[in-house]
Computed example of a mutant assay.
Amino acid sequence: MAAAAANALKDAWPVVLALALLAAAIAAWRTAQAAGGRRRDAERLAVLRITLAEFDGMDDRQFEYALRDLLVRDGWPARRVGGGGDQVADVIGDHPQRGRIVVQAKHTRVGGKVGSSVMYAVKGTAGPAHGANHAVVITNGTITRDAMAWGDRHGVHWVDREKLRRWAEGGTALHELLGLSGRSGGRGLFKRAA
Rank of each mutant, 00 (worst) to 15 (best):
G37V: 02
G37M: 13
R38C: 04
R38G: 11
R39A: 15
R39Y: 01
R39H: 11
R39D: 12
R40V: 12
R40W: 02
R40G: 00
E43T: 03
L45F: 14
V47P: 03
V47S: 11
V47I: 04
R49V: 14
I50W: 04
T51G: 14
L52G: 15
L52H: 10
A53N: 12
E54S: 13
F55N: 02
F55I: 01
F55L: 15
D56F: 01
G57K: 08
M58T: 07
D59N: 15
D60W: 14
D60F: 01
D60N: 14
D60K: 10
R61I: 12
R61G: 06
R61P: 01
F63A: 07
E64R: 10
E64P: 04
Y65V: 10
Y65N: 11
Y65M: 11
A66L: 03
A66P: 01
L67C: 15
R68V: 00
D69C: 07
D69L: 13
L71G: 03
V72N: 08
D74G: 01
D74A: 06
W76D: 02
R79F: 00
R79Y: 08
G82F: 09
G82Y: 10
G83S: 08
G83Q: 09
G84P: 11
D86T: 08
Q87G: 01
V88W: 13
A89D: 05
D90F: 09
V91F: 06
V91C: 04
I92H: 08
D94A: 11
D94H: 11
D94N: 13
H95I: 07
P96T: 05
Q97I: 10
R100Q: 00
R100D: 00
I101W: 06
I101P: 02
I101A: 15
V103W: 04
V103E: 05
V103F: 09
V103S: 00
V103Q: 03
A105E: 05
K106A: 07
G111F: 07
G112T: 10
G112W: 06
K113I: 13
K113F: 12
K113A: 09
S117T: 15
S117V: 09
V118K: 01
V118L: 04
M119F: 09
Y120S: 04
Y120N: 09
A121E: 14
V122M: 10
K123E: 14
K123A: 14
G124P: 05
G124I: 04
T125E: 13
A126Q: 05
P128H: 02
P128R: 12
P128F: 06
A129I: 06
A129Q: 12
A132R: 03
A132L: 07
A132Q: 09
V137R: 02
I138G: 03
T139D: 09
T139W: 05
T139Y: 08
N140T: 08
G141R: 08
G141Q: 09
I143E: 02
I143Y: 07
